[in-house]
Simulated scan of single mutants.
Amino acid sequence: MTSRVTLISPAMNRSLRQARFDDGTTSLDDGGTALARAAAGTLPPAARLVVSPGARCRETATALGLGAAEPLAELAGLRTGRWAGRTLDEVGGSEPEAVARWLTDPDCAPHGGESVADLCLRVGRWLDTASRTDGRTLAVVEPDVVRAVVVRVLGAPAAAFWRADVPPLTATEISGRAGRWNLRLGNPLRPEPAGG
């Protein structure tokens, strides 16, 4: 049995543009919606469709024309506690030591939310379940979730989490069996050229 998971990062929104800790309520901006709509029909068919519960992931799935998607709490982005809704610059200005610790120690959660290590464990548990599912799963998920999957698939330490950039509206694909995954990173979703 071969499992395939295609992870789609959400289209652009104000939180992504402003390097703001998203609180899950910020919608896509007009440009992000337009790009996602233009990429509709570029994804392979899938047996299952799941999404991170935040607005930008649900709206990206809709704009891509993927239909009704099941929001999964285990695929939520990194929970950033009291930093949610603030920009990285704002938090860095008021809590520089806390931000430095957070970016270097994956077990640290100075914001009162979730540590990177805990996120990686949570997403890893979901990935273990996905590995026992035959066929393709499409998952429109937060960039944090994509990073956690990359860390898990590569067997990298959680400290490598911040070393992976996840551009908006890209596909990261994994495939494998018995928990052994192969990884294909960052394929942009592009509409088919006119005329074929």
Rank of each mutant, 00 (worst) to 15 (best):
G92W: 14
D107M: 07
S175Y: 03
G67L: 08
D22N: 13
P110F: 11
R152Q: 14
P188H: 02
C120V: 15
D89F: 13
G195V: 00
D107V: 06
F161W: 15
T26Q: 14
D165Y: 08
W102T: 04
S131I: 01
D107G: 14
S175F: 02
W181I: 04
R86I: 09
A84K: 09
L78Q: 14
W83I: 12
L121P: 04
F161N: 06
R56A: 15
G54N: 15
T6V: 10
T26M: 12
D118A: 15
G81E: 12
A139T: 09
L75R: 05
D23Q: 09
E142L: 09
V140S: 07
S9F: 03
R86H: 14
R180Y: 06
P71S: 05
A38D: 14
A63N: 10
T2E: 13
G195L: 02
V5L: 12
L119D: 13
P167S: 04
P188C: 01
G179E: 10
V141Q: 06
C120E: 08
L7V: 05
L189K: 03
A68D: 13
A156D: 07
R82N: 06
C108E: 15
L64G: 04
L183A: 01
E97G: 15
M1W: 08
S52R: 08
G195S: 02
L169C: 02
L28K: 03
T26R: 12
R101F: 08
D89Q: 14
A148N: 11
D107I: 05
A73R: 13
L66E: 13
N182C: 07
P53D: 12
D118L: 11
P157V: 11
P167C: 04
G54I: 01
L43D: 04
R122V: 12
S52T: 11
T104W: 09
V99I: 14
L183E: 06
D144F: 11
T33S: 14
W181P: 00
A158W: 11
D105L: 08
D29I: 02
W102I: 05
A11V: 00
T133P: 00
A36R: 00
L43V: 03
A156Q: 05
G31A: 07
